[in-house]
Nucleic acid binder design. Structure first.
Lengths: 197, 197
DNA sequence: AGTTTTGGCGTACGGTCTACACCTACGAGG
DNA sequence: CCTCGTAGGTGTAGACCGTACGCCAAAACT
């Protein structure tokens, strides 16, 4: 009986993602997303409660591919975990502007929760019991979020290099290593610290 | 010859911090800070280029105590590093609202840079060479930022506990551990992964 | 064809940041 | 003491933002 919806959640999320990819996160607004869909601003509120819900939609869309090809084929639990973290990095790297939104909403995003569950499965396969799994998940999630945040804001700057000799040297060697290897190296240290073979 | 300044940077930062502590980060605006100082809005622009610079001031103030008592007294490098990370956690914990600002501006905040330099000193004392120090700093900074971000947004919620059995169990044990011990445990795993005694 | 549910939109309000122009308080030089 | 120039304080206004409210039209079922 009712008039059918002419917009799907995916279309709305895709429009928001297009705005972010094209003009950056600051350009995301109800107005710009509505314009991307060739609608007036208020039409969006028929599909979305408020801006927060719009942000959740785009996070779900951007984080969707984090598990698209079943990431359970790697031989060792450690390789599986490494691949899971790398997949999250790739998903965010494909749409860098959504990183702040992903950080803010990853607790409620279904793809992010599935990603956590997969991590816990790999930790279980590695022989960790429940409390150890919880601690390990915390460490891995914290490292991943922080590493992505550090990667997507440029390197730190030293106002007075002479006053920060070690920092200046560290920034030099860091500038010589690719973000991908830096991320993987950090992930490996965490996994080593967790005692995962 | 000129008329003297009636406001110091510290007073402005303290006013902004007071607004954040009292009413939360969303309440921070040029208007609210100006009102806190008993000035009209535009008076602030005599002291601060724009809102971003105001944010930097408050981050510098909030992160100042991260090094107030010389944190170099701990016996082992590992204990020193653990104390440095804990200090950052305490500084943020004293003003939870500034966390997003601290994450956004820690690359340019002097206290944050000094904190990194101290970490590098401890890593040097632990026997790491320059490339290893850079990698270790990256891992420690990433973990710290991510752990604080995870800590200051509540625990994740599982919409369908049956679909996420391991996650539901992990959230249960996590709810039973204090944020402080969870943070320290994660820091210890990273330090272990770095091979620091 | 009529009814009803819903989608789409116009208007408007209160909020944000800040560019600009104006007045004035203050301290130094005469 | 008086003047003067610099800089502090502020009012106005413009361009954005999110969104509450109310109206109209379109679409599908009876």
């Amino acid at each position: 009986m009712p008039r059918p919806r002419s917009l799907t959640n995916d279309q709305i999320a895709a429009a928001a993602l297009a705005v972010i990819d094209r003009d950056g996160l600051p350009a995301l607004s109800m107005r710009t997303v509505a314009a991307e869909l060739d609608r007036r601003t208020m039409a969006l509120y028929r599909y979305v409660e408020d801006r927060e819900e719009l942000e959740c939609l785009v996070v779900d869309l951007a984080l969707g591919p984090v598990l698209d090809r079943a990431a359970g084929r790697e031989p060792s639990p450690r390789a599986r975990l490494l691949a899971l973290l790398a997949r999250m990095r790739e998903a965010v790297g494909a749409h860098p502007g959504v990183l702040p939104l992903a950080v803010r909403h990853h607790r409620t995003s279904l793809p992010a929760l599935r990603w956590r569950e997969r991590i816990l499965q790999a930790l279980d396969a590695a022989g960790l019991d429940a409390p150890a799994r919880a601690a390990a998940l915390h460490a891995l999630v914290a490292y991943t979020i922080g590493a992505l945040e550090v990667e997507h804001q440029g390197p730190a700057v030293t106002p007075a290099p002479a006053a920060f000799p070690l920092l200046a040297a560290a920034l030099g060697t860091r500038a010589a290593t690719s973000p991908s290897t830096a991320f993987t190296a950090g992930a490996n240290t965490v996994l080593t610290g967790l005692g995962i073979a």
